[in-house]
């Protein structure tokens, strides 16, 4: 009995010690973090928007944290391999996953097995504005597009990238909200979609405003509807979804994720460092250069998580109804 009790006592003491030790280690590591070079896993191919984002942040974060960073592109399976590797990495904050909204859209479509229970969002740093883009010779404004779609149910074709892409989700939520009978064809890359819109083979596409600026100038393509609460300062003539009474505001977003078991203290430190990068002049200059400055990009860990969960539910519902 006595032996048993003392064993128990020793055991709980041991547990307490272990607990204490792990707490000190955690806070120690947060203070010392990073203890070794960081690794950025980019859930997209080299040269794209997410890759450029990671490679722009790299030197800035190296300076803030005084460390080295290596960037690895893992484009396979819409980035699912990057998410999986992050979830399986040491939960010490040294492996960061750079991802776009494709993370949740592919999760909703069942193409990405690594969910938000295995990954913790650190922050969102970019929020691009989704728009409906058409050939202005065909549809000079949104009203004419809407009228044509209403009069010819099932005839209007929207192009997009793939079946689990953010632009498909924009299409599904737009169709769901507007009640228009329109169809979607996925292409292999965004370039093919634009070529088909310009060539008059399809009626329109959903895309980020940043990528359509040069076409607006020449009049080959034109955004006619903006997914936003208020009209954009630079484009006061383009109506928004919210004015039409549709609660659609999500665009393509880019952020950073870590293993869900990463200690709070380290997570907080990475978030603070990213905020420092985000607020820097150099980063803001980059956002302006690539036209990502129309909307506030920053969203902290907790807010970003809530928004992702909300979007995920919404996308799941849309895919099920479809």
């Amino acid at each position: 009995m006595l032996i048993k009790q003392s064993l128990l006592a020793a055991g709980s003491l041991g547990l307490a010690l272990v607990g204490y030790a792990s707490v000190t280690i955690a806070s120690d590591t947060a203070e010392n973090y990073p203890t070794k070079p960081l690794q950025f896993l980019v859930a997209a191919g080299a040269g794209g928007g997410t890759d450029n984002f990671a490679r722009t942040v790299k030197p800035m974060l190296e300076e803030v944290l005084d460390t080295r960073v290596t960037v690895v592109n893992l484009p396979s399976a819409s980035g699912a391999i990057a998410h999986q590797r992050t979830a399986n990495s040491e939960p010490d904050g040294h492996t960061l996953d750079f991802a776009s909204s494709t993370l949740v859209t592919s999760l909703a479509a069942g193409q990405n097995p690594t969910g938000l229970d295995e990954l913790t969002p650190v922050a969102r740093m970019q929020s691009d504005v989704m728009t409906l883009i058409v050939d202005p010779e065909k549809y000079p404004d949104f009203e004419s597009f809407r009228k044509h779609a209403e009069e010819n149910p099932g005839e209007v074709i929207i192009g997009g990238t793939h079946a689990a892409s953010p632009d498909r989700m924009a299409f599904l939520s737009f169709r769901d909200a507007s009640g228009l009978d329109i169809n979607f064809i996925p292409y292999d890359e965004e370039g093919s979609v634009s070529a088909n819109v310009m060539g008059g083979n399809i009626d329109g596409m959903f895309g980020e405003i940043s990528s359509t600026l040069s076409y607006m100038e020449s009049g080959e393509m034109m955004p006619i509807l903006v997914f936003a609460e208020e009209r954009l300062e630079n484009f006061p003539d383009i109506p928004t979804t919210v004015e039409h009474g549709w609660d659609l505001t999500d665009g393509n977003e880019r952020g950073i994720f870590v293993n869900a078991d990463t200690p709070e203290a380290i997570l907080a430190k990475i978030e603070a460092s990213m905020k420092e990068v985000y607020d820097s002049d150099a980063y803001q200059e980059y956002e302006e250069r690539v036209n990502l400055h129309y909307r506030e990009g920053w969203l902290g860990s907790e807010d970003y998580r809530q928004q992702l969960e909300k979007n995920l539910e919404n996308y799941k519902r849309l895919l099920e109804e479809n």
């Binding site: 080299a46 040269g47 794209g48 928007g49 890759d51 450029n52 722009t56 890359e189 370039g191 093919s192 634009s194 070529a195 600026l213 040069s214 076409y215 100038e217 020449s218 080959e220 250069r289 690539v290």
Partner: peptide, 24 residues
């Protein structure tokens, strides 16, 4: 502003990073 192949897609990304917008 539409890439015709894999490598040109990356060159397109490079243009954007340099603050240029290939297009019509």
């Amino acid at each position: 502003g539409i890439p015709g192949s894999g490598t040109t897609a990356i060159i397109l990304g490079a243009f954007i990073m340099h603050g240029l917008q290939p297009g019509p």
